[in-house]
Design a protein around this nucleic acid. Structure first.
Lengths: 338, 338
DNA sequence: GACCGGAATGTTTACGTAAACATCGGCCGA
DNA sequence: TCGGCCGATGTTTACGTAAACATTCCGGTC
């Protein structure tokens, strides 16, 4: 409001440089047909006045914002915030900015609200990081001119979906434990609403079944270490439990603590595998064997996907899976000899 | 490009509703002097055409973007991403969007680059989450019309700074250990470039000195659990070390692992205190006594501060400290009887 | 019954940029 | 030598919105 001077515009620069504002525009956008001497003159004037292009005017004119919206529920999940980081980094490399749209409470109302606001938002495309269950239940149609990429979903028939290969990761984890000689593997699953949790649980079940092993009833957590601890207390009391696959590293941490408190040694008596490969996993007691997720790659492919859609102007339904890799550390070993 | 139809504008709505576009504008902005029946007509037309205000045009006209830029180096620090989450949430409540500007490599060049891009960005204000050392060394002046709030800095004389009360948190941690009867407290510090680390180390030193205790040489980590583990290995070999204050929870985790591996029981032989109170700290072995930081409050005050500056049009230098609180769990106890 | 005031609505204009079109001047080939 | 062509630059215009100003119409007042 009370700023000393209005913002410098192209007209101001043009006046000082003694050219037309269109020439300033050409210099600003790097158009080739401006001769060197003129360009220098304009650049000098820009510098002297401290000219900055007005992105609102530019967006208005061009119809492009060079901005990607990212909708997400929570940062607290390791995956979300690491994916967001990768998205932001890659978008920046492509000259795109990121606009964050947090949806604090994942109720249908707030999702609708977020998408409504989205329609007014200055974005060329949107990346949605959330369980698509909510996307479905929300009776919202995305504004037709906005392209969408979804993470963590199975809606590959309708949207472009990028996700970690959850199933293969879980399979690797279970196979690793079976190969070590365990009769079967117990599972601490994530919350029901989560697709990732569902996938991991399903692959765990399938792998056991395919190997002809008994499938114990899964325990259910909510991704938190505390919920893993509760599950771990239950498992610690079962002498027949020698191998546990937790659906994420945090819950594995809780399982480790429960086993430790109940005096069951890891990996001597019980083996534990996690999922995510968070940085801290190397410093758990003992260092955790876990499934590594390449969040950076997920983010990269999200940006790539959305930019492709923005350029081509049309959606490209389909699912891209980013491979996972088992990282073996010290929390797994053959089962104890009876 | 090849979209079936151009975007719906106010003129289209006006045509359908049989009013002028200015009336549509008035309805859109909630201007009072539109009679009920007209308003209904316009709203119906908006709905039928799927009208969405064009924020670029709106920003161009009003000179405001209703957007806050957030510059940050890394999400991997717990504090950064939790603060970001709180900022995003509160900004959304105020009807502001968040634009993320990641600076992957904290070199001077990339900082300059980020701030240059910033000048062109459609933001009304900026929140900087980073060590201000780099802000200083970067020979950048922020565009004069952009307001700034800084987190984690001591530049309160030049900028509005919001930070956790690092010093008091560290004091509480050290005092707690001394009160338990420990002769002195060892410190695993964060990296030198970090103001937060510097503050915590200084307060640790001051508190020991004020109590007339010996001040051991601090060990230095880089916030990671692995670096805490390395420091822990050193401390585990010193029989005179009975109490450790780690500058964050991750490093505390590493210390716990090192002590465990070397057979020194926690808290029986050695007490450990962390800083941050991350969610997982309750499931460390043993559950970690740590200093709780209220990131949500930090985020809230950042948004509040920047909005105030945007409204008033002038900077408001000064520092706001958010209190911390010691959370006592199971990793601290009186020292062993010799 | 003419006039005044104010509420409801319409018209004009400007925000800063960049595409489209217009102009100018010099160089090349016939 | 001259027409034409192309590269460099200028002029016009439109993007969608909302402030400022203009107009219309109504009820109420003297």
């Amino acid at each position: 409001m009370g700023r000393p001077k209005a913002r410098v515009s192209m007209a101001d620069v043009a006046r000082l440089a003694g050219v037309s504002s269109q020439t300033v525009s050409r210099v600003s956008t790097g158009h080739p047909s401006v001769v060197g001497s003129t360009r220098q003159q304009v650049l000098a004037a820009m510098k002297e006045l401290g000219y900055r292009p007005n992105s609102a005017a530019r967006a208005l004119k061009s119809g492009q914002f060079r901005t990607i919206g990212v909708i997400l529920f929570t940062f607290s999940s390791t995956g979300n915030s690491r994916t967001l980081e990768a998205i932001a980094t890659h978008a920046a490399q492509e000259g795109y900015a990121i606009t964050l749209i947090p949806v604090a409470v994942p109720t249908q109302d707030s999702v609708v609200g977020a998408f409504t606001r989205l329609g007014e938002l200055a974005v060329d495309g949107v990346i949605v990081i959330m369980e698509v269950h909510l996307l479905d239940s929300a009776t919202v149609t995305l504004p037709p001119h906005v392209q969408v990429v979804v993470v963590d979903s199975d809606a590959g028939d309708r949207y472009t979906v990028v996700d970690t290969d959850q199933a293969d990761g879980a399979r690797q984890a279970v196979t690793h434990l079976l190969d070590l000689g365990h009769c079967t593997v117990w599972h601490v699953a994530g919350p029901e609403e989560s697709f990732a949790a569902e996938r991991r649980a399903q692959a765990w079940r399938d792998t056991l079944t395919a190997a002809g092993r008994e499938v114990p009833a899964p325990l259910r957590g909510d991704w938190s270490a505390e919920s893993g601890y509760q599950a771990g207390l239950v498992l610690a009391d079962r002498p027949d439990c020698t191998a546990v696959f937790a659906a994420n590293d945090q819950m594995a941490l809780g399982v480790l603590r429960a086993l430790h408190e109940r005096g069951r040694s890891v990996p001597g008596e019980v083996s534990v595998v996690g999922f995510d490969d968070i940085a801290d996993a190397t410093s758990f007691i003992p260092p955790l064997t876990t499934v590594h997720q390449d969040f950076a790659e997920v983010g990269r492919r999200c940006v790539q996907g959305i930019l492709h859609q923005i350029d081509s102007g049309e959606a490209a339904p389909g699912t891209t899976l980013v491979p996972t890799r088992l990282v073996v550390r010290a929390s797994t070993a053959p089962p104890p000899r009876p």
